[in-house]
């Protein structure tokens, strides 16, 4: 299959500082691609360049080519909001709107201009089921999501992102706020979503990347040191920096 995202020589600047240096990689559809690396190596910057959320940063600038489904991602023909919908994102902290559980998910449908109640209901139910949250909240759909645990809130965020009907789902260190008991559930959700969407996944927990990803890329100081099949990265990395990182001697 043709790659869903192709990146060629991506350089990113914030103001005068160069954050990413000559990144080139492809993202294959219906796979989990993980970016690993120590904090501040530029992981978040990479993924935000992919869904144009970096456009919101005043001093953001990039060179190089990013193709999404073979077409230039940053061309003027694409509305940034449409790109952000197709390449939806879940953040480190579960960020919920000050609305009910139902409305949080329904929002993603409403802003696409779909107003039909039955359609919205269906999508909300379906998305909550996909993230394995349905059984926990089905009786409390119209209450405030604050009573949910952090893990459940994060599940709700995933449901909201899914309701936007994305082609790619990006996760930025989604488990950083979760406790150890909630992480396996998250990982199983990730595995089940893989059939439906392409997943890009950023983490600084290398073990987690090893467990859930198909392809892993190691970022270090804004450079993509190595990207390849997860098995290869974790058994026979070609770069000594990767070797040191995956064995825990670096970062």
């Amino acid at each position: 299959m043709a790659p869903i995202i192709e990146v060629q020589n991506l350089n990113v600047w914030f103001g005068k500082s160069r954050i990413l240096k000559n990144l080139s990689f492809d993202i294959e559809p219906k796979q989990v691609t993980a970016f690993i690396g120590p904090s501040n190596c530029g992981k978040t910057t990479v993924i935000r360049s992919l869904n144009r959320l970096n456009d919101l940063q005043a001093d953001y600038r990039h060179t190089g080519e990013i193709l999404f489904n073979g077409k230039e991602l940053y061309s003027n023909k694409n509305r940034a909001s449409e790109i952000a919908r197709k390449i939806s994102m879940v953040f480190e902290k579960p960020i919920l709107f000050k609305k009910s559980i139902y409305e949080n998910v329904a929002y993603s449908v409403r802003i696409r201009g779909r107003r039909q109640m039955s359609l919205i209901n269906n999508i909300v139910d379906e998305c909550l089921m996909k993230v394995q949250l349905w059984n926990d909240v089905k009786d409390k759909l119209h209450t405030d999501p604050n009573f949910l645990s952090i893990g459940q809130q994060q599940q709700l965020c995933i449901a909201r992102a899914l309701a936007a009907d994305p082609e790619i789902l990006i996760f930025d260190e989604p488990c950083a706020q979760l406790d150890a008991t909630e992480t396996p559930k998250f990982e199983s959700i990730l595995q089940s979503l893989k059939q439906q969407v392409t997943i890009i996944f950023v983490t600084n927990k290398r073990r987690q990347a090893a467990r859930v990803s198909d392809v892993a890329g190691f970022l270090y100081n804004g450079e993509l040191v190595e990207i390849g099949k997860t098995e290869q990265i974790f058994t026979t990395p070609t770069d000594t920096r990767t070797e040191n990182y995956v064995t825990g001697r670096l970062g």
Binding site: R207, A210, R211, T230, E231, F234, T235
Partner: peptide
């Protein structure tokens, strides 16, 4: 054998 090694590497 490759599979075993992969599983060890990925899941510890």
């Amino acid at each position: 054998e490759a599979k075993c090694i992969n599983i060890i590497a990925r899941y510890q």
